[in-house]
């Protein structure tokens, strides 16, 4: 039995005028939370659709739990939350959920039981109000999102695929979703989610794969990916603002290769032959009051910007979650 939840080998997907996915290979370890990171239009959704056998790759093989992804019945073990969410608006919530559960091979009675448990767990069914009996379009947006989570998880899938799960979620639902992901992980389920929000990915993922323009840029366990980038990063916080001499130091390319100024904190990548010691000495000499000076692993955000580069970055990508 394969130890991977998902194995993609040399997958290609071409459309007229552009290649959506170019020779992509990746492995999602079983029981891990895996982040598929990349700017908008990088090919994340195409990759996920190929995984789910919604669209066929032009080349390459995809295996899920060691089996070809087109094998009948394999979809019953997968839960999918698409980026663009939707439910039958005129249908009763309970009937929609039962329908989607039955499509995952659940018996009607099991589906009904599961629906009630989930509705209670997410607060859609209380002693005074049962939203399960309401029509979908009578629900608020937040409640519809919860219903959509339920539809993804109702059949207790072994592999959960979430495409941009945090987009459009209010903070409460975002937290609920994070809790769900953690719980799935603890129960040994595999979770794949795509996102362009690096902070979320950094906090949640065991492993990541960064793709841009349809190609893999790097992949691996988060700790490993960060280690590979070396520890030439320094996080600096100054307590007295920015004294006059400091900008000049930061512009010194012999010392500082790159500086990411987040106002309160500076994330500095040292130039190849510079030492953190020199930097500290120069900052102090310029009159900076050091509140924090720490050698750090680069953040995923930083790595992402370094590797993908500004050209691969579209609007909306650089936001922190």
């Amino acid at each position: 039995m394969s130890n991977a939840a998902v194995e993609i080998q040399h997958a290609w997907k071409r459309y007229t005028g552009h290649v959506a996915v170019r020779d992509l290979s990746l492995t999602v370890p079983r029981g891990s939370v895996y982040g598929l990171l990349g700017p908008n239009g990088a090919g994340k959704t195409t990759t996920i659709r190929m995984l789910l056998n919604i669209i066929a790759p032009d080349e390459g093989t995809i295996r899920i739990f060691g089996e070809p992804h087109s094998k009948p019945g394999i979809t019953n073990r997968i839960g999918y939350l698409p980026e663009e969410r939707g439910l039958y608006r005129k249908m009763q919530v309970r009937r929609v959920l039962r329908f989607l559960a039955q499509l995952k091979g659940m018996a009607k009675a099991d589906a009904d039981r599961g629906v009630d448990q989930w509705l209670e767990r997410l607060g859609l069914r209380t002693s005074d109000k049962d939203w399960g009996a309401a029509k979908v379009d009578e629900l608020s947006r937040g409640m519809q999102q919860k219903v959509q989570f339920i539809s993804t998880l109702i059949h207790d899938p072994d592999l959960v695929i979430l495409d941009e799960p945090f987009s459009g979620l209010d903070p409460i639902n975002a937290q609920a979703l994070k809790d769900i992901v953690i719980e799935l992980r603890q129960r040994g389920k595999s979770v794949i989610f795509s996102t362009h929000l690096m902070d979320n990915a950094e906090r949640l993922c065991d492993s990541v794969c960064i793709i841009a323009r349809g190609e893999k840029v790097l992949d691996g366990a988060v700790a490993e990916v960060k280690a590979r980038q070396g520890d030439r990063h320094v996080a600096v916080v100054l307590s007295n603002g920015t004294p006059v001499g400091v900008p000049e130091i930061l512009r010194d390319r012999a010392l500082v290769a790159r500086c990411d100024d987040s106002n309160r904190m500076l994330e500095i990548e040292l130039a190849p032959r510079a030492s953190a010691q020199d930097l500290l000495a120069r900052l102090i000499a310029a009159g900076a009051a050091i509140e924090r000076f720490e050698l750090v692993r680069p953040s995923l955000h930083r790595i992402f910007l370094d590797r993908v580069g500004a050209t691969g970055v579209e609007e909306g990508m650089s936001g922190h979650g």
Binding site: L52, I54, T75, N76, I78, Y80, P82, E84, G86, L87, Y88, L100, L103, K104, S151
Partner: peptide, 8 residues
């Protein structure tokens, strides 16, 4: 909805 359904 189609996307959810055709994933099943």
């Amino acid at each position: 909805v189609a996307e959810v359904v055709v994933s099943s």
